[in-house]
């Protein structure tokens, strides 16, 4: 005989449909943060295609879980993006993001800067920052989140967020201002 046994199905609740007004609220409150979500995912994953997958997955989860959002939609959404990113690293058998340390390797950021002094170069410089400093910097400088949101989002104490930010900025200063003497003059 076969090993096929139908499972009891009746105890499973039907999926709750998302009410139209909920969809409208989602559109109003969460959708405006799509660029933030994508930018954050892009800097986390450093891969455009992966960032798209991550954000799409994140919006799907966010949409389903919208009822659980208690204000601060941006930080809420970015938390989901972060979780999707972590799932993505696991699914891709990547080394999980090292919370403690990651050395700057490969091409030296200054070399990248010498190539082109434009937005792409600044992006490349930010992307060259090791984690967890890159994430803290992106959330603070690009997404302008307050310390407490960054702390909640990354699961780190505020003091840790602050020291990560300081490290990130010190590294960035070296990279970005290295050959601009006036930049650091006081």
């Amino acid at each position: 005989m076969n090993g096929f046994r139908p499972r009891l199905v009746f105890s499973r609740p039907a999926p709750t449909p998302v009410a139209p007004d909920q969809a409208e609220r989602f559109r109003l409150l969460v959708l405006p943060h799509l660029d933030a979500a994508y930018s954050y995912a892009r800097y986390l994953a450093r891969d455009p295609a992966a960032a798209e997958d991550i954000v799409q997955d994140a919006f799907l989860r966010a949409f389903r879980a919208f009822a659980s959002c208690r204000g601060n939609e941006k930080a809420w959404l970015l938390t989901i993006v972060r979780n999707c990113f972590l799932d993505w690293t696991r699914a891709n058998r990547r080394a999980p993001p090292d919370i403690e340390a990651e050395t700057v390797d490969g091409e030296h950021p200054e070399t990248i800067l010498q190539r082109r002094q434009d937005a792409e170069a600044v992006r490349a410089t930010v992307e060259a920052l090791p984690e967890p400093f890159r994430e803290a910097l992106v959330l603070r400088e690009l997404e302008e989140l307050p310390y407490k949101d960054i702390a909640a989002l990354t699961g780190a104490p505020i003091g840790t967020v602050m020291s990560r930010l300081a490290r990130a900025r010190a590294m960035l200063a070296t990279m970005l201002l290295a050959r601009e003497d006036e930049g650091s003059a006081a």
């Binding site: 660029d35 979500a37 892009r42 960032a51 992006r123 997404e143 200063a173 930049g183 650091s184």
Partner: peptide
Amino acid sequence: ARLRAVRAKLVNAEPRYRAP
């Protein structure tokens, strides 16, 4: 001053990505 210079440099380059 250095912190502000880094920020200016960073923000002026508009490094945020836009969703496709």
